[in-house]
């Protein structure tokens, strides 16, 4: 990189908003710092020992009320900053409906990504410009963190849990990907590049990839081999809910709660079925914790999601 920059590239929707707050806070902090600095300096000089400046009692102006005054002032200022920052975060939070979903698995010390059509990458990620991208991330060992400075985004990647990260890239180019959570020996080398391409280039790139068997179909295979189908597809022995259309639906649970069947929910249903039992069913489903690895879970979930379209529901 040539020259010295003091401001990182802004290549995502979020970046603009973040930078706005940063600039505002820079100004505020600068002002406060200037105020404090100026006061300290002028007082130090004006009231240095031996100067002829007037001393004596404090003027009426400076008294308890002032104290209450600036306490209130700082409180208000602080709350104002909080309100702005907080609302920005909230607005950035509301999920876009049709996002391009990419699964990311972190392990010491590499990033593995898998696109909906099964195309795989390692320490690299290609995304189309202008589209909502939703990363579904999990770790196979320690905690890692997915960090792209140019996008101003970061999200820890936890073992045994799904975390998600949404962004919409606005500027084509190659950006550095860092692992920001300390994860052991090669933490500093656990990086990669995120390439933002025009949508059509992305499509072309995707097509060019060695078309790995697509997630859904791999998932289907597992669904059978693991014996899920045995119960979930018209079994005579066990009454298990059909899974067609489960994804995204609101599910009533036996204990009265109603939850949205998202990836996390399905993941739990597989690993800890007893945790949320579907209303009207027996908690017969065995836990598959330890039997299915993260990659397999990714496929199973992809399969169950793909059932969204088929069947009446």
């Amino acid at each position: 990189m040539s020259g010295i920059s003091v401001w990182p590239v802004a290549a995502s929707e979020a970046a603009g908003k973040v930078d706005a707050i940063v600039i505002f806070l820079l100004v505020i902090s600068g002002a406060i710092l200037a105020l404090v600095g100026a006061l300290v300096l002028t007082f130090s000089i004006r009231y240095r020992r031996g100067s002829s400046a007037r001393r004596g009692a404090l003027p009426e102006l400076v008294n308890r009320e002032v104290e209450v005054g600036w306490t209130a002032a700082t409180l208000l200022l602080a709350l104002f900053i909080f309100a702005w920052a907080g609302s920005t975060e909230l607005s950035a939070f509301q999920p876009g409906p049709d996002a391009l979903e990419i699964h990311v698995t972190a392990k010491q010390w590499m990033w593995k990504a898998q696109h909906p059509n099964g195309a795989r990458e390692i320490d690299a990620l290609h995304v189309p410009r202008g589209e909502q991208v939703r990363l579904l991330m999990t770790s196979e060992d320690a905690i890692h963190s997915f960090f792209v400075p140019a996008f101003r985004i970061k999200q820890d990647v936890l073992p045994g849990r799904l975390t998600e990260l949404r962004f919409r890239a606005t500027l084509t180019g190659e950006y550095t990907l860092f692992c920001a959570e300390y994860c052991g020996t090669l933490h500093a080398r656990m990086g990669g590049t995120v390439t933002v391409m025009e949508p059509e280039d992305y499509a072309r790139w995707l097509a060019a990839q060695p078309e790995g068997d697509d997630l859904g179909r791999e998932g289907r295979a597992l669904f059978v081999s693991l014996g899920c189908a045995g119960c979930h597809e018209g079994s005579t022995v066990v009454r298990a809910p059909g899974l067609a259309g489960v994804y995204g639906r609101a599910v009533n649970l036996a204990d009265g709660r109603v939850v949205r069947a998202d990836e996390a929910y399905i993941r739990d249903s597989i690993l800890q079925p007893k945790r949320d039992v579907v209303a009207g069913y027996q908690p017969l489903m065995p836990s598959f914790a330890g039997l299915v690895g993260e990659d397999e879970l990714v496929r199973l979930i992809a399969y169950i999601r793909s059932l969204r379209t088929e069947g009446p529901s």
């Binding site: 908003k17 973040v18 940063v22 806070l25 920052a85 975060e89 985004i153 970061k154 920001a180």
Partner: peptide, 13 residues
């Protein structure tokens, strides 16, 4: 600055 969530997301760690 760190206490403001959107910025912290960028500069944490």
């Amino acid at each position: 600055v760190l206490a403001s969530i959107p910025i912290d997301v960028h500069v944490t760690d």
